[in-house]
Amino acid sequence: MSEARKMNADRFGVPAESMIFARNVRKTFGALEVLKGVDLDVPKGSVACIIGPSGSGKSTFLRCMNHLEKLTGGIILVDGDFVGYDLVGDKLYELRENQLCRRRAEIGMLFQSFNLFSHMTVMENLIQAPVQVRGTHVEQAKEEAAALLARVGLSDKEAAYPRQLSGGQQQRVAIARALAMKPKVLLFDEPTSALDPELVGEVLGAMRDLAESGMTMVVVTHEIAFAREIGDQLVFMDQGQIVERGNPREMINDPQSPRTREFLSRVL
């Protein structure tokens, strides 16, 4: 464990097995307060699912975790480190770009709209970041990429362009692209919301395999069934706050808060 991590851990009381550690996270866009003090603990190797109505701040919270959005207040530690800062004394110094990139590269992210690089083939998409960010040799990156494509069942699509793939295939390629960076944690921002109903299953299947392989995952989703089956922790957010959290099966069967009950009754 690095010196900085140990200091952070002592100072904020971060549990040893913590992957995501968020305390009192606040985020405002102008006058609009999107996150009003959110706490979250995601232990290593576990799956946390975040549900909630649109506009509840769940996507913003997820984007804060890899510093795509800067926090207005509070802290988020990923594997014991601040993603965008170095803590010295009581000051958070913004990281230089190359350091920020190095930390971000350890956190994979999947998007609702897949965001595969549309001018590159599937194989080029997969080797882009390892070669450009990590400096992996092209041949080695290709070998690893081929193995990842086999894992998501798309070995025959190496030379295809994203536009030639179905939505489900594109999201599976996006998962392989994120895995190519060997991330510590994967963040999913509504990964199946843009898919035709019949294609949802293949993406959820790939995510299930990942969870079983011990990957730490934070999943913003509307798939309650997936959360119940795979999630170790379910979090219900509304209006920038966490309303209820707990074991997914218990929470879905017997929600304590009336707002959770109302939301679940509408989506189930």
Partner: peptide, 23 residues
Amino acid sequence: VPSGQAEAARALGMPYRKILRQI
């Protein structure tokens, strides 16, 4: 170019200079 392209590249840890030139 859709903003999601640059966002995905940032999430992968690419610096701005490379995002601009390669994406």
